[in-house]
Amino acid sequence: MIAVIDYDTGNLRSVANALGRLGAEYTLTSSPDEIRSADRVLLPGVGEASSAMAKLRERGLVDVIRSLTQPVLGICIGVQLLCRHSEENDTECLGIFENEVRRFDLPGLKVPHMGWNSINGLRTPLFDGIDEGAYVYYVHSFAPTLNADTIATTEYGLPFSAAIARGNFFGTQFHPEKSASVGERLLQNFLKL
């Protein structure tokens, strides 16, 4: 069973639909017990970092998420919450990844970064069968910086972490659930980790 963490941030439906298309069994839940006992955990979401962290705190999920040992995948705001700190309203995040989350702040750059952009420097089995330079779908104004845990890079003005991995924790800044066949392959890979 896959636990999709429901913390009232919208777009859970998109992730659930994508899992449904892959024939995966999932449950949308904010129950610490269900999350702890799941084979896989997904932390999706769209929204603003400080209110998303507040929602995790309200539901008593901060320590639950930190203590997980099964494969965990954060998507979009989900990967940002797994990072150390976000510039968005100066938010302390979960600190699984050491990365800082920064705003796109270059003259002439359209923000949000919206649309299909390519990923490179692909590492780990999360990207098995996915080609260098493959296109994935993004909608975001903030992104994690690069560091040794970066497993895919995208460039928009500056390079940033398209995906990060550390131990059993994974995260993608892009939306695999909206990234056509490339995204489906990534989700399948995650289910096989």
Binding site: R13, N17, R21, K178, S179, A180, S181, E184
Partner: peptide
């Protein structure tokens, strides 16, 4: 549409 389409 949301159930069946894998792009935005």
């Amino acid at each position: 549409i949301a159930e069946n389409i894998n792009i935005p």
